[in-house]
Simulated scan of single mutants.
Amino acid sequence: MKRFLLLPVIVGFIIVTFPVVILAEDSSTVLATAGNLKITQEDLDESLKVYSTEIQNAVKANRQLQQKFLQRLVELELFSSIAREKGIDRIPAVKKRMEILVNDFLSKELLSREVVDKIKVSEEDMKQYYKANAEQFKKPEEVKARHILIKVKRDASEDEKKAARKKAEEILSKIKKGEDFASLAEKFSDDPGSAKRGGDLGFFSRGRMVKPFEDAAFSLKPGEVSGIVETRFGYHIIKVEEKKPASIQPFEAVKDTIKNELIKKVQNEKVKEYVQRVMKERKVKLYPERIKMN
């Protein structure tokens, strides 16, 4: 089974259940069968090569993705086989579309081999880009916090607002007496997203939260608990657990990103030059004025 040409154009997973065999080390190991169809580890590995390195690594590192990819490959082979049995591939309009897809793939493969793969980016080029674009790799200050929200409706009456604030003050009093913040958040917080995690909001930077909440959180030191903070959502009690100062990501951490960025910049110009050269060598002539308009 060696037909992988059209794999990239299949978008999404078709929901069909097939028996899935866990991936094996031996390249000859059969991973799936359907009638005369047989897919081996080698087939799966080859089909993965049409995707980017990032996708390949993600699939190889995740058992669930491996199984989904195998099912996708089975679907592709099985359904295309059925289509051929029914003569769908011999319908003129279908043949033309298949030809376009094949030509598109071959064109990209040619440009990849003749242009993109030959582009080299040196370590020095990457370091110069890193130094010249330091702001691009800046990580803003972040804070890790928990909170307890006592929700107040936008159309709440004054009595309802007073009752909500009183409840928040009672909870704050419990915290000051030493009761566990996370347990109180789980019990009393009206924020369904964080309450079940003990009010944990994880790390966030400025601009992620409403202003009064943000100002309070970033003014606290790790371990400190705020007073009652009012926002449009209601009354909050915030506990900061950790802070990360603003920093520049190290070169090694962004090296691949820089390399890809530099390749993209060079690639566009190199591809343009290649296309122009080939068009000239092959004496291509275009007659756009002859295009029939609907």
Rank of each mutant, 00 (worst) to 15 (best):
residue 188 F to S: 08
residue 88 I to W: 10
residue 163 A to K: 15
residue 256 D to N: 14
residue 202 G to E: 06
residue 7 L to E: 09
residue 51 Y to I: 01
residue 9 V to H: 04
residue 234 G to S: 03
residue 199 G to F: 10
residue 120 K to N: 13
residue 67 Q to T: 06
residue 138 K to M: 11
residue 287 Y to F: 14
residue 153 K to L: 14
residue 244 K to S: 09
residue 203 F to K: 06
residue 247 S to E: 11
residue 225 V to E: 05
residue 125 D to H: 02
residue 117 D to A: 15
residue 70 L to C: 00
residue 108 K to Q: 15
residue 271 V to K: 10
residue 163 A to F: 07
residue 175 I to M: 02
residue 32 A to P: 10
residue 213 F to P: 02
residue 289 E to F: 05
residue 218 F to K: 04
residue 231 T to W: 04
residue 98 M to T: 11
residue 248 I to F: 10
residue 100 I to L: 09
residue 13 F to R: 01
residue 195 A to Q: 03
residue 138 K to N: 12
residue 266 V to L: 15
residue 191 D to R: 02
residue 92 P to N: 01
residue 278 V to P: 03
residue 112 S to E: 15
residue 271 V to F: 06
residue 269 E to R: 14
residue 118 K to Q: 15
residue 162 K to L: 05
residue 7 L to P: 05
residue 206 R to Q: 09
residue 210 V to C: 11
residue 116 V to Q: 09
residue 279 M to I: 14
residue 285 K to G: 11
residue 180 D to G: 13
residue 2 K to H: 08
residue 195 A to I: 02
residue 209 M to F: 02
residue 131 K to A: 13
residue 288 P to E: 02
residue 178 G to C: 04
residue 126 M to C: 12
residue 160 E to Q: 10
residue 206 R to V: 01
residue 121 V to G: 11
residue 134 A to S: 15
residue 144 K to A: 13
residue 7 L to M: 07
residue 233 F to R: 13
residue 118 K to R: 13
residue 234 G to V: 01
residue 83 A to K: 01
residue 273 E to H: 06
residue 181 F to V: 02
residue 269 E to P: 11
residue 90 R to E: 15
residue 9 V to I: 15
residue 120 K to E: 12
residue 172 L to Q: 04
residue 267 Q to Y: 13
residue 108 K to L: 14
residue 101 L to E: 02
residue 187 K to A: 15
residue 30 V to A: 14
residue 275 V to Y: 11
residue 4 F to Q: 00
residue 217 A to T: 09
residue 113 R to S: 08
residue 63 R to G: 00
residue 249 Q to N: 04
residue 162 K to R: 12
residue 99 E to I: 05
residue 291 I to Y: 09
residue 47 S to F: 00
residue 35 G to L: 01
residue 69 F to H: 03
residue 189 S to C: 08
residue 77 E to M: 01
residue 122 S to D: 07
residue 215 D to I: 12
residue 109 E to F: 13
residue 110 L to K: 12
residue 48 L to V: 06
residue 31 L to T: 00
residue 163 A to Y: 03
residue 228 I to N: 02
residue 174 K to A: 09
residue 130 Y to L: 07
residue 236 H to L: 04
residue 54 E to I: 09
residue 143 V to Y: 14
residue 239 K to H: 02
residue 63 R to P: 03
residue 219 S to E: 11
residue 108 K to N: 15
residue 224 E to K: 11
residue 37 L to E: 08
residue 102 V to A: 09
residue 210 V to K: 10
residue 82 I to Q: 02
residue 171 I to Y: 11
residue 104 D to E: 09
